[in-house]
Design a protein around this nucleic acid. Structure first.
Length: 214
DNA sequence: CAATAGATGTCCT
DNA sequence: GGACATCTATTGG
């Protein structure tokens, strides 16, 4: 399969709501020191904008954690959440504005054995179907925060094959309880690699969003 | 299959 | 202190 060329800086220098659906079908790759390659095709993303109550950049001011999100586009924003997981985002929009796209799920293409070792499971569907899973499968952690995906020799986003508009599903974002009515989650319709256990993910998505924690 | 408890960093909207 | 862009293991039907 042809994975294409690196996406240019201009691709990321747009509003996150525009970049997000355009990221579906694109390919995240990582080349390891020994030459092995990891590759996965993005099938689920979410947009986050400055001023958005659900966004880390809501206040408009960077913190030690969110600094990268406010920087130039095309870089990787990695944050630690729930006390034990890392999640990966691609920084979008102009330098100085805190906007990014959360990489929620992907279809593994290459380096599955390495991903399985990183994840501690052999189940292909569980390798990259979730933001923390995807991040773990690629061995991404705090050290990768701020990596320039446009120029880095190892970690990149390739053009792949973008999806046609009709192949893209939209919904409200997962786990967002504030400002959740924004339909800023984008996913590939019918893909079995989107994050599991979310009923409204599937074609027969009816509105069934209840409280999720006690 | 569904529900739930537990892990516990970072920011406070 | 409380909420959170989550995942896993375990329990119960």
């Amino acid at each position: 399969m042809r994975l294409g060329r690196r996406l240019p800086r201009s691709f990321f220098a747009r509003p996150s709501t525009e970049v997000a659906p355009d990221l579906l079908g694109r390919v995240l790759t990582r080349t390891l020191a020994d030459g092995a390659r990891l590759a996965a095709r993005l099938v689920e993303v979410e947009a986050y904008e400055q001023g958005d109550p659900a966004s880390h950049s809501y206040t408009g001011r960077p913190t030690a954690r969110t600094e990268v999100m406010f920087g130039p586009p095309g870089r990787l924003y990695v944050y630690f959440t729930y006390g034990q997981h890392f999640c990966s985002n691609v920084v979008t929009g102009p330098d100085g504005i805190g906007s990014a796209v959360l990489l929620r799920a992907a279809e593994p293409l290459d380096g599955l054995e390495i991903m399985a070792a990183n994840r501690g499971t052999d189940d292909v569907r569980l390798l990259c179907s979730g933001p923390a899973r995807l991040t773990q499968a690629f061995g991404i952690a705090r050290a990768e925060n701020g990596t320039d995906l446009v120029r880095d020799p190892s970690l990149n986003l390739l053009s792949g094959v973008p999806l046609s508009p009709r192949a893209i599903g939209k919904s409200t974002r997962v786990g967002v309880t504030v400002g959740g009515e924004r339909p800023w989650r984008f996913f590939e319709r019918g893909s079995s690699f989107v994050s599991p256990g979310r009923p409204w993910t599937r074609a027969s998505a009816s509105r069934a969003r209840g409280s999720r924690r006690s």
